[in-house]
Write a protein that binds this DNA or RNA. Structure first.
Length: 219
DNA sequence: ACCCAGGGTCATA
DNA sequence: TATGACCATGGG
């Protein structure tokens, strides 16, 4: 009998769904904005907010910092938590400008860049890692709720481990691989893609997330 | 009407 | 360290 491992699951998901071509954005800065706006929010709602920013020619750190918070919040409205996110986005933009912009940030070593990101109000571990991986192409694996649930269900983890414990566990399992950035990029995207196969049985059994066929629900 | 979504901060114990 | 309240829109 073959045992599924963390690297093996990556192969299986890639076979099943193919490449996902993440992050859906046209620039690194757009990745950063999207990473903040997608916090506990459906991506379709984030797209609407980003469309608002583009229509207003406000998808830039300078414009966002200069704009009144009420106006920023208004652009962000479709993505939910708009008052909170307007504040967070402002902090991120101030940081981005203070650090000298994308080119300067590209020179910062990964561990330092992570610490720097985490010092920004509104940027937690997952958001920081989204940015590190998808805006700066750093070999960092993003742990989200889907990853936690799927990996727990498959017996890779207990489920309640601290974020950084899980992250290093996954990263170590690909330690010998040369293309870590590509793998981590695709793996996280594939897990999110796979999550869309969650069964729609109500009430949710709590175990049916992230498998195409839920044994408990019998779907 | 209810549940959920590509989290993070803050107060509290 | 570890819970719980809070933030808020849009789709199923």
């Amino acid at each position: 009998m073959s045992t599924v491992t963390i690297p093996r699951l990556f192969d299986l998901l890639l076979q099943q769904y193919g490449q996902q071509y993440w992050w859906p954005a046209q620039s690194p800065f757009e990745v950063i904005v999207g990473a903040v706006l997608t916090q506990n929010t459906a991506w379709t709602n984030v797209e609407k907010a980003i469309t608002n920013l583009k229509s207003a020619k406000a998808l830039s750190a300078e414009v966002i910092v200069a704009a009144p918070m009420r106006r920023v919040a208004n652009w962000l409205k479709p993505s939910g938590y708009f008052n909170v996110k307007a504040k967070r986005l402002r902090h991120v933009c101030l940081w981005y400008l203070e650090q000298g912009g994308y080119k300067k940030l590209c020179r910062v070593e990964t561990a330092r860049l992570r610490v720097s990101l985490l010092s920004v109000h509104g940027v937690g571990r997952e958001t920081a890692d989204d940015i590190l991986l998808y805006a700066f192409q750093r070999p960092v694996f993003v742990i989200d709720a889907y990853t936690r649930r799927l990996f727990r269900r498959l017996g890779f983890i207990a489920g309640a481990e601290a974020y950084d414990i899980l992250r290093s566990k996954v990263e170590r399992s690909f330690a010998r691989r040369k293309t870590k950035v590509m793998v981590f990029n695709e793996y996280h995207a594939l897990i999110v893609r796979h999550a869309k196969n969650v069964c729609k049985v109500k009430p949710r059994c709590g175990e049916c997330c992230l498998t195409a066929v839920c044994a408990r629900c019998g779907v």
